[in-house]
Design a binder for these strands. Structure first.
Lengths: 283, 283
DNA sequence: TCGACGGATTAACCTATGTTGTTCCCCCTT
DNA sequence: AAGGGGGAACAACATAGGTTAATCCGTCGA
């Protein structure tokens, strides 16, 4: 079902981890580093605190596309840090209607909710092939008990997620289809830039039009119409699950996008003239 | 602008605090008790921890309806615990469209976001006249630094709020107008029951149809149509800002409502035959 | 190689919801 | 008593977006 997604995911961006390699220590610390970087958006972590996170025992694990993460026995109760690929949280009504609640991109944690709430309200599924670092709740618990500032930083990260969910509510509740789509693209542009997954306004978007529909509260037919309209206006090029934004400034304007709600320290350029070279970090 | 709302709010439910009385110590501890009760949905707090919360220095304060809480100078940066009345969080687009993101009912905290995120993405406004306990960030900080389990409980409460926001996303994204309205009513029924604000399927709903519209992502005209339809089906009686649910079971069915996402320990009856007598707590 | 299948695209048609504008009513102010 | 304003209710009309269905295309299993 997701073979194409996998293909295109790998085809692009040389900086991706090769999917076939065995995980090794470098890789692992490389990835929990994503978490450190993210939390540093909130507070500067001490050397000690950074070490504590970097040395979290986190096994790496690969998952195929369109698969419920919770289905995987070895992930029971575990917290997954996305290294590579797209996942999403979603809820389904008894009659089958489904709403995607958030996208998980590299650097995001799959579910602190389970960790704190004790159970989960929403399923987490992969969209593309995904590789994750698996952190056990025990280790996370130990970490938070020992380092209150890390607890606070994790709390912060869940609040940022809520801020994004709220913006999606504004999006679906108030914006038209075209505005919604433009807004989602701007958001992805900014979030993926922050984790070095954007190259010259271009990023992998390994999802289906009907998944976009479930995200935006539209029908898949209308998602198609909307994408056509964006193409007609020469704002995007979207082929083989690769999205290129031809005019971010215009998209931003249409969407009335303002990135504050993402709570990132630095935001990539929306200037149509120059190339997108946001944060210099990266692997 | 909000005189009517204020009037009706006071007209009903003898158990309300008299609005004119000066706050006294009993009242204050009575109210922070709401917070203890709420957090106990998550973990049993020790005697010590309960005391710490109950003895938080919290001045009481009254606010008129339709007023931004942040506008009040004396509340700058403070955390407000709602004692009485309705408030909401909302965001507004540059062109004036507005989305209400959540309702704050007695027992809810106005904004842990400011406390953790350092700034706020969304405004908080009163809907009716409201009385709040004002907690300073310094005191809250001291509390969380001293009692990690309280920190965790507060974290939990923000995650519950996110769970509700997510359900609203499902609501707006997937449900029809009638379903949305029914769902909102079920949610309010359960949440208000948990804080003893419901009497025989009847509760104060001191908000305007156009505020309902901004909540549900509908136009106010269509909110009106939808309410008429619910009346026609004899599911609700709604007059003078008092909502009576004539058939919760049917509303629940229409809405495909399932209260798990609210994370409450006990949920009031949806049985049409019996009266609603949920948690026995109360003032 | 063939058939099946899922996704993208498009057309035709339909309806839920939005828009505009009017009336009524209540409450408040003067 | 008169006037003003906001909210509720309702009618008439407009449209964004949903539904159904057909075609096309690439991939994959048999």
């Amino acid at each position: 079902m997701a073979q194409r997604a996998a293909g295109t995911l790998l085809a692009n961006f040389g900086r991706s981890l090769a999917f076939e390699e065995k995980p090794n220590l470098d890789e692992v610390s490389c990835v929990t580093h994503l978490l450190v970087r993210k939390l540093q958006n909130f507070i500067a972590l001490s050397e000690d605190e950074q070490q504590a996170i970097l040395s979290l025992p986190a096994g790496s694990k690969r998952l195929r596309g369109r698969q419920m993460i919770a289905d995987d026995k070895s992930l029971k109760g575990a917290i997954c840090l996305i290294e590579e690929g797209f996942a999403c949280r979603h809820r389904t009504l008894p009659d089958g209607r489904r709403q995607i609640l958030s996208f998980l991109v590299p650097g995001d944690l799959s579910d602190l909710r389970v960790f704190i709430l004790g159970r989960t309200d929403s399923a987490v599924s992969t969209l593309s092939d995904v590789s994750v670092s698996v952190i056990t709740p025990e280790h996370l618990l130990a970490l938070t008990e020992r380092y209150p500032r890390i607890t606070r930083a994790l709390w912060w990260s869940t609040l940022v997620e809520e801020s994004i969910t709220q913006e999606w509510l504004v999006n679906i509740g108030q914006r038209s289809a075209l505005e919604r789509m433009a807004h989602l693209l701007c958001e992805l542009y900014v979030r993926l830039s922050a984790v070095a997954q954007v190259d010259v306004y271009t990023f992998d978007l390994p999802i289906t039009q009907s998944e976009l529909a479930d995200t935006l509260g539209l029908s898949s037919v209308h998602v198609n119409r909307t994408l056509q309209e964006l193409r007609r206006r020469e704002l995007i090029v979207f082929r083989d699950h690769v999205m290129e934004l031809k005019d971010v400034a215009e998209l931003k304007k249409i969407a009335m996008f303002s990135p504050g709600y993402l709570h990132l320290r630095s935001v990539p350029s929306f200037d149509p003239a120059q190339k997108a070279t946001p944060q210099t970090g990266g692997r």
